[in-house]
Amino acid sequence: MTNRATGPAVDLTGLTKRFGELTAVNQVDLRIAAGEVVALLGPNGAGKSTTIDMMLGLTKPDAGRASIYNRQPNEAIIDGKVGAMLQSGGLLPDLTTNEIVTLAASLYRKHRPVPEVLERAGVAEFAKQRVGRLSGGQQQRVRFAMALVNDPDLIVLDEPTTGLDVEARRAFWVAMREETAQGRTVLFATHYLEEADAYADRIVLMRTGQIVADGSPSHIKSLVSGRTIRATLPSADVNVLAGYPGVDSVETRGDSVLLQCSDSDAALRELLTATAAHDIEVVAHGLEDAFIALTTETSTP
């Protein structure tokens, strides 16, 4: 395998994009080292696609800077360092799979042999069929083949498995794994926590245009999968409660307090001995529920 580029693969600083009143992406800082497999996780409208568009130079940021391997995105693209798969479109329906991948290959000075790429992306079996007649899942794999054809160091995938069934999704990630095993850097956007958990080394969680958490899958899961303690505690001191062991965050609702906990047992022990809290409930969240809770904007009363 050829030597992979080193240095930060992606470096975003203060990246901001506004659409009229709406700030789609707000002061995003993100640095991705070479070889990392990073999931950009968040619900629809979190700003993932806009962030990716700015990272790739398709959209001009209103503020901040995006660079790929310490260069302007378009320079890195011209140099053949980047393979990208957009969320939709980008295919010419009149061409066959083989033709469109050959066409994509012809745009690069150096590229992988087309038959190898067709095989790798799992599109060889329909290489002679026109792209417009393929199913959504098959078209997605053709896009994947086009993103791989230039042997990129950085692969950027915007919601690569949208519209795929479970089987196709698994096949896609198996192929992806083989690619990342060769030291490529991968950034993929998704709104499935499961997918981010299973395939990424690092999860960057976005909500309403901002990065709200960044860490290993187990760290992110601990953030979203803890328990909530609800108790009645009039005139509680929020700062004191937040300092209890196992407590991540504290909210008050009238006379009630809500403690988001990574270790609810430790928090409960402290709460019962040190305060007059009563009517205590402990609620565990499902992973997806908790993820939704974390990524949905909370309105403070």
Binding site: I77, I78, G80, A84, G90, L91, N150
Partner: peptide, 17 residues
């Protein structure tokens, strides 16, 4: 037609000058 199917955006992700 090419613009309609997003081919132009795809081309911008390649070195095509």
């Amino acid at each position: 037609v090419e613009r309609g199917v997003g081919w132009n955006r795809q081309l911008r992700l390649t070195p095509l000058n």
